[in-house]
């Protein structure tokens, strides 16, 4: 049995460079920007998330909402169709309701701002799912169902009876790589970086294109920000 190596170490220099995190500040606070103008609702980010994190069938850490009447179906206000997409995973709230309600601190905020799960501690009360306004947490309801039994991914599976969610791919951050969904977005709609560094790409985008918070009024202070769509110029 050959001794295994980190999937990051095995990347070619070119690929590895592509995934490098911007050099972070001293005390990084990781955040993500999603450009809704560029997002084409392709679900690559959702799918790679499943693959990267070995998320079973029926469960999604990252989903793409259609701002419309149905999946990829536009709304039509006075015969004028409109449609856009809003990818949605854990917002890594600075003021995270989930961490507040967790009776055992199984979900907690790391110093780098990542809202993390400790599945060895979680008692499975699902209070965090109640508390999360974004519906991004999923419970392990039973033995995991995988496509034809195929185990995928670069992290361990979570035990039954506990809750899981987006981790910002901390296992990749530790190795200086952007999260998998950021790597795999074909439209360049996902940008990742250090919110504490005012010159990081994310900070600049949030400033210049007024990055918005989802459900801002709930005061959860998400670290995922959404860039609004550009204004259309008619013919």
């Amino acid at each position: 049995m050959p001794e295994r190596r980190s999937p990051v170490d095995l990347l070619s220099p070119v690929s590895r460079a592509y995934g490098e995190l911007e050099p972070p500040s001293e005390h990084p606070r990781w955040g993500m920007v999603v450009d809704t103008e560029r997002c084409i609702g392709c679900w690559s980010c959702g799918v790679i998330c499943k693959s990267e994190n070995n998320v079973p069938l029926g469960m999604w850490w990252n989903r793409i909402l259609t701002e419309g009447d149905g999946l990829d179906v536009p709304t039509s206000e006075h015969g004028h169709p409109e449609m856009s997409w809003t990818p949605l995973a854990c917002q890594h709230c600075d003021n995270a309701p989930c961490t507040k309600v967790c009776p055992v601190q199984a979900t907690y905020i790391r110093e780098d701002g990542v809202v993390m799960m400790d599945n060895t501690r979680c008692i499975g009360c699902r209070y965090c799912m109640i508390a999360c306004p974004y519906g991004v947490r999923t419970f392990n309801w039973g033995a995991p169902d995988r496509p034809n039994g195929l185990e995928t991914g670069m992290v361990e599976a979570r035990p039954v009876g506990t809750v899981e969610k987006c981790t910002f791919c901390v296992h990749r951050l530790e190795e200086g790589q952007v999260p998998s969904c950021v790597w795999s977005c074909p439209a360049g709609a996902r940008i990742f970086g250090d919110l504490n560094d005012p010159d990081s790409r994310v900070s600049r985008l949030i400033r210049d294109r007024s990055g918005e918070m989802l459900l801002e009024e709930k005061g959860t202070l998400p670290k995922v920000r959404y860039l609004p769509a550009r204004r259309r110029q008619e013919l």
Partner: peptide, 17 residues
């Protein structure tokens, strides 16, 4: 917390890429 959360932040290895 006593910061006793296990280190979940390591990638599982692979044989080759």
């Amino acid at each position: 917390l006593g910061r006793d959360h296990p280190d979940v932040a390591a990638s599982a290895g692979v044989d080759r890429v």
